[in-house]
């Protein structure tokens, strides 16, 4: 749940980029880091190997500016994709307000995508979070590579709940901000619904 500080009028939301290893989660954050002006972002923290396999997590804080008089900030995290880092994934997922699931569109990665998506649902449930209510968007990444599944095939594989989904080529940056906007909107809208309830 987003943290709302009424005294300093700040909203802080945590968004986690989830997905199998090498699907492009870190690349998403790197692209955002490179594009956002320095006064709108903090340092990008990467606990990674020399070729960017995430060991623990990547972290990038963003400042969205003022919304309704509230200074609104996002904390973007990635999780490590390797199956055995499940304990770490659970830690990073803790307290998430929204999840971007970054899927690898290559045909050869089908099983990895399904496995990772399942793992996400399991880990959310384990933390008492209903996967049907927490904001999740899908990003079908690497659309520019040869031998990728069609969008319909990807939907059949992962999107049986009709979640918002975005095509992306995260290395080139295409679709990265569309995805971020999509999840931001959902997370903040959910927050405004909470305000709504509070008003009633």
């Amino acid at each position: 749940m987003s943290l709302v500080n009424y005294s300093t009028r700040e909203i802080t939301s945590k968004i986690v980029y989830y997905g199998p290893g090498r699907s492009g989660k870190t690349t998403n954050l790197q692209y955002i880091h490179a594009q956002v002006p320095e006064d709108r972002r903090g340092r990008m923290v990467s606990l990674a190997t020399e070729t960017d396999r995430t060991l623990f997590f990547d972290f990038l804080p963003l400042d969205l500016g003022s919304i309704s008089g509230f200074q609104t900030r996002f904390q973007l995290y990635t999780v490590p994709g390797q199956v055995y880092y499940d304990a770490t994934r659970k830690l990073v997922l803790q307290g998430a307000d929204g999840v971007v699931f970054v899927a690898d569109s290559q045909r050869a990665q089908q099983d990895e995508n399904i496995e990772s998506f399942r793992n996400l649902q399991v880990n959310l449930l384990e933390q008492g979070v209903d996967p049907r209510t927490i904001p999740i968007v899908l990003q079908y990444n690497k659309r520019d590579l040869p031998d990728v599944l069609s969008l319909d095939e990807m939907d059949d594989l992962l999107n049986y709940r009709d979640l918002p989904r975005y095509e992306a080529r995260s290395l080139a940056g295409a679709g990265v901000f569309d995805t971020l906007r999509g999840i931001s909107e959902q997370v903040l809208r959910r927050l405004s619904q909470r305000f709504g309830r509070a008003v009633e």
Binding site: L64, G65, S66, I67, S68, G69, T72, R181, S184, E185, L188, R189, S192, Q193, F195, G196, A198, V199
Partner: peptide, 15 residues
């Protein structure tokens, strides 16, 4: 509490 409708409007603008 805060005004929900106002928040919604500002949210759009902020995004």
């Amino acid at each position: 509490t805060t005004d929900a409708a106002q928040f919604e409007r500002d949210l759009e603008a902020g995004l």
